[in-house]
């Protein structure tokens, strides 16, 4: 097997799937339910609700920064690849950015499954050694006196960035604010602007 050509992959996957089902090791309904959950229910719109609430509810924000797992669970988001969460806050002085250099660790309950670039060699290689260059590639240009903190999620903690609330959003409620929050802003490769949106 090891060096499977891509042409053979689809066939190989069908073969393994059919064998596992035949042997009673995989229930097709369970497989379908799992995929459906990640395709329809879990995604960055969850994280965006967490961020918007933190922007509008100071007591929630305090809980989020001191015990992120519990605070996020209050909003109904928990479980696989979000069992032990840490939220890091962007401020005028600090910008946070998350990577997993060793594999693809990512907070599934709040952001869904990671995009390809997050799991790929270029981002994992450069995020730690050249975070400002990476941010430039994402269109984020930080002043030199702002501190960049890179979080390499190498163990079992999973990280979510709490972006800065953009100016010009003072009158907006949590639902309107959530619509502004992008996935990349919660990874730290983006920021939130008043006119932008939205986490899919």
């Amino acid at each position: 097997m090891p060096d499977t050509h891509e042409d053979d992959i689809a066939l190989r996957v069908r073969a393994i799937e059919s064998l596992l089902i035949e042997k009673g090791l995989v229930q097709p309904a369970a497989l379908a339910a799992i995929v459906e959950t990640y395709e329809t229910k879990i995604g960055p719109h969850n994280g965006a609700q967490v961020v918007a609430r933190a922007w509008t509810d100071p007591a929630f924000k305090a809980r989020l920064l001191s015990d992120a797992t519990a605070a996020i669970a209050e909003m109904g988001f928990s479980g696989v690849q979000g069992e032990d969460m840490v939220v890091v806050e962007n401020t005028p002085a600090v910008h946070n950015m998350v990577v997993c250099t060793l594999c693809s660790c990512y907070p599934w309950p709040t952001l869904g499954l990671p995009p390809n670039w997050y799991k790929s060699a270029p981002y994992r290689a450069r995020a730690v050694i050249d975070p400002r260059g990476v941010l430039n590639e994402f269109g984020v240009d930080l002043p030199p006196d702002k501190e960049v903190r890179v979080w390499d999620s190498n163990a079992e903690l999973r990280y979510l960035v709490l972006p800065e609330r953009p100016p010009g959003t003072e009158g907006m409620d949590a639902a309107a604010l959530a619509a502004l929050v992008t996935r990349d802003a919660m990874i730290g490769t983006g920021t939130v602007a008043a006119g932008q949106g939205a986490a899919q």
Binding site: I9, A10, V13, R14, I16, E17, L20, L25, V26, Q27, A30, L31, A32, I34, V35, Y38, E39, V80, G112, L113, N116
Partner: peptide, 17 residues
């Protein structure tokens, strides 16, 4: 979320096994 149908199946098979 998945670029090919087989990727979706691999994700589901990983989670179930």
């Amino acid at each position: 979320m998945f670029h090919e149908a087989w990727e979706r199946t691999v994700f589901g098979l990983f989670m179930t096994t």
